[in-house]
Amino acid sequence: MTLSPYLSRYLSVTKPGIIFGNLISVIGGFLLASQGNIDPVLFLATVTGLSLVVASGCALNNCIDRDIDGKMQRTRNRVTVTGAISPRAAAAHGVVLGLAGFGLLAWYTNAVAVTFAAAGFVIYVGVYSLYMKRNSVYGTLVGSLSGAVPPVVGYCAVSNEFDAGAAILLTMFSLWQMPHSYAIAIFRYADYKAANIPVLPVAKGISAAKRQIVLYIVAFAVATAMLGLQGYAGYDYLAVAGATTLWWLGMALSGYKRATDDRVWAHKVFLFSIVTITALSVMMAVDFQVPPSAFAG
């Protein structure tokens, strides 16, 4: 066995795509709070530590989900399903990554950032993966909280407090997770049904999921605006936020057309959700402002 395939198996179990997505958001939160005054050591420690924590959670999730992953077309070739990595090896890999990640965060950041990282980890691995995903239609809602943690960790690593800016980030990214996840559940409907996972489209129907997608995008649009209206981001950010969320909303509303192919529509909504959150993460990183409260005292 060559070294490269061996390493690739251990890399794949950490879900690199999810790590990269969270990397963008944690950087956005960090740079928003830094307001141009970047501590490179703190930045590197925060980004690396949080990425290791996310990788740990994904590895452990793969261990927990290996039975249902084997029933889904998209996931049936994961290394924990095929046996390329044993559950024990994958779990040990996850534990080591988690210890390294939390160690970095604890040493270089602060208690607030570490607390949110730990909360996100426990919600994702413990509450969501072990129970809610398999047993409740509200699993997506619970999982959205863990998905919203990375930008908050990045922000709090700099600010050392959970202020209004951090609260807006938590709300924004939680709300974004919902239409993003429901869109996945629609175009992967057959997989979720085969695995008997009670996501909204399977449990309540695709029409119900479409309505929820529209409502959550509207709520997300309001939350994104608050970051600018509360003085944390500037007019360029607000312009991009307005343009992307309105386009996303229009795309979601187009799903009610009679001739719409739900799978194709949902895939487009999913893809644009990534464009939207990436654009906003970049803009809040480069178009930061000093909120009025910072001048108090």
Rank of each mutant, 00 (worst) to 15 (best):
P87T: 09
V81G: 09
F102K: 03
Y182K: 13
R74I: 14
D39K: 07
F173S: 01
T46F: 08
G57L: 04
A194L: 08
V282A: 02
K210G: 09
Y138Q: 11
V114I: 10
V13N: 00
L3A: 10
M283S: 03
L3G: 06
D287L: 05
G231S: 05
C58F: 00
K71S: 13
L253E: 15
S159Q: 15
L130G: 03
W176Y: 10
G231L: 07
F220R: 00
S293R: 10
V199H: 02
A233P: 06
V222R: 05
A285D: 04
S273E: 03
L31N: 02
L42G: 09
A221G: 11
Y192N: 02
L105R: 10
V54I: 12
S8L: 14
G36P: 07
A157N: 11
T2E: 15
L42Y: 11
M72I: 05
S273A: 09
I168Y: 08
I217T: 14
L97D: 02
Q289S: 10
V53D: 09
D39E: 14
N22E: 01
F272P: 01
K193M: 13
G29E: 01
Y256R: 15
Y155W: 03
C156S: 15
A252M: 07
G103M: 05
L23A: 07
V149N: 03
N77H: 09
I186G: 02
K15I: 06
